[in-house]
């Protein structure tokens, strides 16, 4: 094996080999984290603290994202709908776009940027300060102690934050619809509620759950695999946000395709 590795150094095949090794390591880490999250013991108090940090802490940024998303979406929709004389359908247009796509994706990106980077930076600092080694030396499993509560918190809070983001976006859309095209509130909300079918609502929630899982796993993995050195924390944080964001977009495409074929 060593001979093979020496023969492949600096060739594209070698980088592909490294990529596969990294993929394998992430898969093993994900398996361990999932097993720890599913099987007892559950670290309830640490999980609650993480839910507070990830969920409640991200509430302002997610709310603002939802509000501006609703406002802008309404303005853009009015321009297009006016061309075909269908401004009455603005609630439907905003409802569909937000609940199926923009709500889960944008709120997840915000959580990845805010909470994912914080998770990664915290774990990277602990790795560099040998606190992860100290945990193991003291008889604890770092995955159980650090990864499991953060992963569970991401899984629980992401759908909740997405739901809040969706609601605020509807309110943003309503503000614009009422003031710019003077549509009646009843008509707007009735139009929004028309698209809030169980399939769309559950679809959005499943997407949020999947994105929460990605944020939890990527941020924890990135933090715990930090190389030594002061720049390690910065690199881990950047890596966590970039990989989480790209994974969310790619996963969104995949889930949307599956839902369109099977459910929506």
């Amino acid at each position: 094996m060593d001979r093979l590795k020496i023969g492949l150094v600096r060739t594209p095949l070698y980088y592909f080999y490294l990529f596969l090794c990294e993929l394998g390591a992430i898969a093993r880490f994900t398996g361990t984290a999932l097993k720890s999250a599913i099987l007892p013991p559950y670290r309830r108090s640490i999980t609650r603290r993480q839910m507070d940090a990830i969920g409640v802490g991200s509430l302002p940024i997610v709310t603002l994202t939802g509000l501006f998303m609703g406002l802008v979406l309404a303005l853009q929709s009015i321009v297009e709908l006016r061309n075909i004389g269908a401004t009455a359908y603005i609630g439907r247009a905003i409802g569909t776009t937000v609940i199926r796509e923009l709500g889960p994706v944008l709120s997840s990106m915000m959580v990845a940027a805010r909470a994912g980077s914080a998770i990664s930076a915290e774990l990277a600092s602990m790795t560099i300060g040998e606190q992860i080694d100290a945990l193991r030396a003291e008889g604890s499993d770092p995955v159980e102690k650090l990864v499991e509560p953060r992963l569970i918190a991401c899984l629980i809070m992401m759908p909740v934050l997405t739901l809040i983001c969706d609601m605020v976006a509807f309110i943003g859309g309503w503000l614009v619809a009422c003031t710019v095209i003077q549509i009646s509130s009843f008509f707007y909300w009735d139009s929004v509620l028309e698209v809030l079918t169980p399939a769309f609502v559950w679809g959005g929630a499943i997407k949020a759950l999947a994105f929460g899982f990605v944020i939890g796993v990527v941020s924890c993995y990135s933090g715990m695999k930090t190389s030594f050195g002061s720049s390690g924390v910065g690199e881990a944080t950047t890596r966590a946000v970039v990989i989480s964001s790209i994974s969310i977009l790619a996963l969104d495409f995949l889930i949307t395709k599956i839902f369109i074929v099977t459910w929506w």
């Binding site: 300060g129 100290a134 193991r136 030396a137």
Partner: peptide
């Protein structure tokens, strides 16, 4: 494996270079 190592580590104490105290 990790589980057996926990038993072994329980007989030892490690004082890390910079303390490695939990912040």
């Amino acid at each position: 494996q990790e589980r057996e190592l926990v038993r072994i580590r329980s007989q030892m104490a490690m004082v890390f270079q910079h303390g490695a105290l939990f912040d």
